[in-house]
Design a protein around this nucleic acid. Structure first.
Lengths: 201, 201
DNA sequence: CCTACCGATCGGTAGG
DNA sequence: CCTACCGATCGGTAGG
């Protein structure tokens, strides 16, 4: 029997796909991509395993959507930040944008970071190119800041790695019920910009 | 025929186990623990799959040795650092010790960090307890530094997470042919203690 | 350290 | 979205 209106079927179909995607993101984070089976995804979504393939082409398809979806969000945020004038304003805006993406999708951020190595070609290379570009653009901001005399002469490559490690680590400890995005932003920016040691006056 | 002296057999036996352990560490880092099969380990070690079980009780046994071996090294380093008097000297020493362990075993550090979630009970809980203790002790140093008026009044929990994320990220980008442990130590300590922004005089 | 082998589970397909 | 099913591969054991 099929008494549901077409509009409800569409809505159900969308929410079912979203449900699978959400459960997959959570399971990939908790257990890892390889350790999560298609049967696990099905069980958490309340359907049988083969039904997953009505919504996604393959298990990797889901991982691809998580990884490239997040990468795109990070890229968009960085592009806006780069429009600021001074290197320090650019970096502040880039940090803020990055934090916004991570806190808005902490499970997906963690999965992207931990599981992108499971992507097969050509997705693996495409993704790698994107995150290398992201890092290069952060480094470029820091380099310009050094040249402008605003930032200290630290090794820009190391400074970039340290910053991005901290920012990405956020995905693993951020708790929406415990942390405010605003506090995170000010604390991270303050520590990275000015350090934790009190100045002697 | 068995013409080798006993001492050579022993030596070969030891180096074979070490070889498996080394290859496992590299493969677990590159592909992940779950995505690496016992047959993969055997192939890279130049033996057949069932022979792995002459040296290790199970695949997880190898992961356990990686995780707990590294955790012990981190713990030992921190205990020594805690003997310093002032909070800033303690933190400097703790950072230095952590960097030393990571740079000395970057593959194993990365595996520990990314794969410990694959440990089964009771190892999972034991390990979790250890790293929570490690973090708590770092946080305690920072808290004491704030109380002593040496460190700024940042959120100690956040400051600790930021520092440890940076330090653990090291395992993924450290390159022995490219970075000097000494430079890493001074750059990381400088940035975390004093920030990247130049002081205006 | 090897050959031979096992039950369980994997991602995915056929057909409705 | 389901039932029925498949070939491949998994971690691991028996026995030498």
């Amino acid at each position: 029997m099929d008494t549901e209106p077409a509009v409800d079927k569409m809505k159900n179909s969308f929410s079912r796909k979203d449900e699978i995607f959400k459960q997959a993101t959570m399971l990939f984070k908790k257990r890892g991509y390889t350790a999560t089976s298609v049967r696990d995804l099905a069980q958490e979504s309340g359907i049988e395993a083969p039904s997953i393939y009505s919504h996604f082409k393959s298990k990797e398809d889901i991982l691809q959507q998580i990884c490239f979806g997040m990468a795109k969000a990070f890229m968009t945020g960085l592009s806006k930040a780069e429009k600021k004038k001074s290197p320090d304003d650019k970096l502040k805006a880039a940090i803020k944008a990055h934090i916004k993406v991570v806190t808005g999708n902490s499970d997906a951020s963690a999965v992207m970071w931990n599981e992108w190595k499971n992507l097969t070609e050509p997705y693996f290379d495409d993704f790698k190119t994107m995150i290398l570009d992201y890092e290069t653009r952060f480094r470029k901001i820091i380099k310009k800041g050094i040249k402008a005399g605003i930032f200290k002469r630290n090794n820009p490559a190391m400074a970039t790695k340290l910053l991005l490690s901290s920012l990405n680590g956020l995905a693993f400890w951020y708790d929406p019920g415990k942390h405010q995005a605003k506090d995170l932003n000010s604390t991270i920016t303050n520590i990275f910009f000015k350090g934790i040691v009190k100045r002697k006056n």
